[in-house]
Amino acid sequence: MIAKLVNFFGDPQYRARRRQLFVIILAMTLAADFLVRRDHVEGFWQAIPGWGALYGFIACFLIVFVSKFLGHQGKLMRREDYYD
């Protein structure tokens, strides 16, 4: 069972189905966030429907590109033999 499950995520023949499944889950998550009851929220952002999805996407973008910028332009990334 584990092998089958893992194979579904790895085998290129299921690529289209994986993509479909992912889009459906994304849509369902977003829809659920709009439908959920918000009678008790902790942070102000929790009152905004869809905030989690937006923040997640923006966070991902920022983390990838700011880090790579620091790595390349900020010279944090160096050749593997830098210390040798």
Binding site: D33, V36, R37, W51, G52, A53, G56, F57, A59, C60
Partner: peptide
């Protein structure tokens, strides 16, 4: 709200991963 917020955060991070 905690569940949908977290799932949204994580899955749309996943979307970002797929795109970037």
């Amino acid at each position: 709200v905690h569940i949908t917020e977290t799932m949204g955060l994580l899955l749309f991070t996943g979307l970002g991963f797929a795109l970037f």
